[in-house]
């Protein structure tokens, strides 16, 4: 059985930069989503403080954070509309620039 497919829900694997774990308690997790926005909202449901670490006050991805879907940086860090497919892996990383 596909471990990501439970009760016909599509679950996306999400992982984080270890540096976020200096500030928050985070584990790799599975979420149900079809867009980056939905991934993040699910994460924030269980960890509201995470929102301010990833998004700025206007809801865009912070300047020095990169979100990868299947090893590619998302194309819409403002609207978060990038699609997530059944087999996608999402990584939330810190950019090497700035900070």
């Amino acid at each position: 059985m596909n471990i990501r497919k439970v009760l016909d829900q599509i679950l996306i694997k999400v992982d984080f930069t270890p540096n976020l774990r200096r500030h928050l308690t985070l584990d790799r997790c599975l979420v149900e989503a079809t867009t980056v926005a939905e991934v993040l909202e699910q994460l924030f449901t269980s960890q509201e403080k995470l929102r301010g670490y990833i998004l700025d006050d206007q809801g865009a991805v912070r300047k020095h954070i990169n979100i990868f879907v299947d090893n590619r940086i998302i194309r819409d860090p403002v609207g978060l509309t990038d699609k997530i497919s059944e087999s996608s892996d999402v990584f939330i990383m810190q950019a090497l620039s700035g900070g």
Partner: peptide
């Protein structure tokens, strides 16, 4: 924090231990 934005921590025991409190957020 450079990557994750500004955060605010409060100690209630004269600086011995801390917990994170809210950060000011601008409206839309």
């Amino acid at each position: 924090t450079g990557h994750f934005g500004t955060k605010l921590h409060r100690s209630d025991d004269s600086g011995q231990s801390y917990s994170e409190v809210a950060t000011p957020v601008y409206p839309e």
